[in-house]
């Protein structure tokens, strides 16, 4: 069974000015999971995302959705963009209306559904994202985090199969980041929507993501579960990324201070268990 909802095969993309952004990307994004694409600035994450929903056309190679190559006809693209919802990094570039309600309704209305269904979906999306209280507010009075949520609601209202978010946590405060990621996790588990995020916020990856792709200069250099990826310490450091803080701490404790610990641990809760375990062993001695 093919469980990849989104696939690329040897995807190349060259910009009109000759800049080569993607150099042969072949990945498979698993259905119903939360996938992260890690990479430093300019690694090609955003370019790849715009290839996913046909805003950009590959210079060579293929993008497959549900096992079928993307149909770039007008009708095909419309269908594709309904199923792959894209949330852009800067909500100010995405929100065009001064009314929160009207902005969220835009995508749904473009799907030409009956008005009643449109209203139901807009209300639903606002509830899922927890922004019902912002309904009557003007867009320009919202905070950055609130705008981000409105942008997500506008895409979620279209009830896509895949939700692609470009740097969803960039510019948010620490509480905002964890709230947003929890919300995305909830959307993914309760609605069964596949979530794809790009980020260079490394610490959120082991906490909220099932699978990671690591990009560097338009190439895919690593992939696997967060645990598998972050054991490739050399590669991670070579491409201007770093380990999760906890992973780094565990590494130092193990190799510099001779603690008998598992250095593939990347989250606080795992570290806590490991340290408690270590304490028990230590006391027994």
């Amino acid at each position: 069974m093919n469980e990849n909802i989104l696939e690329t095969k040897d995807l190349h993309y060259i910009y009109a000015d000759g800049a080569v952004a993607l150099k042969g990307i072949s990945i498979g994004i698993k259905k119903g999971k939360c996938t992260a694409v890690l990479g430093a600035n300019g690694a090609g994450k955003s370019t790849m995302f715009l290839n996913f929903n046909g805003i950009y056309r590959p210079s060579s190679g293929q993008v497959l959705f549900n096992g079928k190559p993307i149909d770039y006809s007008r009708k095909g693209l419309k269908e594709l963009r309904r199923k792959i919802g894209m949330v852009f990094q800067d909500p100010d570039n995405q929100l065009f209306s001064a009314s929160v309600f009207q902005d969220i309704s835009f995508g749904v209305v473009n799907m030409k559904l009956p008005e009643k269904e449109c209203r139901r979906r807009v209300d639903n999306a606002m509830e899922q994202i927890g922004i019902t209280h912002l309904r009557d507010k003007p867009t320009h009075s919202l905070s950055f985090g609130q705008k981000k949520r409105v942008a997500i609601a506008g895409v979620l209202a279209m009830e896509p199969e895949v939700l692609v978010l470009d740097e969803p946590t960039a510019g948010l405060d620490p509480i905002g980041v964890s709230e947003l990621m929890k919300m995305l996790r909830q959307i993914q588990t309760t609605l069964g929507i596949t979530v794809v995020i790009s980020t260079h916020d490394i610490d959120i990856v082991p906490l909220y993501c099932d699978y990671v792709f690591v990009m560097y200069h338009g190439m895919m250099v690593l992939e696997g579960t967060p645990k598998q990826v972050f054991t490739q310490k050399e590669t991670i450091r070579d491409i201007n990324l770093r380990l999760p803080r906890i992973g780094h701490l565990m590494e130092i404790l193990k190799y510099k201070d001779d603690f008998d610990l598992d250095d593939s641990i990347n989250t606080i809760s795992e570290a806590r268990i490991a340290l408690k375990d270590w304490k028990a062993r230590y006391l027994k001695r």
Binding site: S105, N110, V122
Partner: peptide, 12 residues
């Protein structure tokens, strides 16, 4: 465009 824009802004 990513939300299906086809030249007209239609909203509720």
């Amino acid at each position: 465009e990513a939300r299906g824009y086809e030249g007209e802004i239609n909203v509720l």
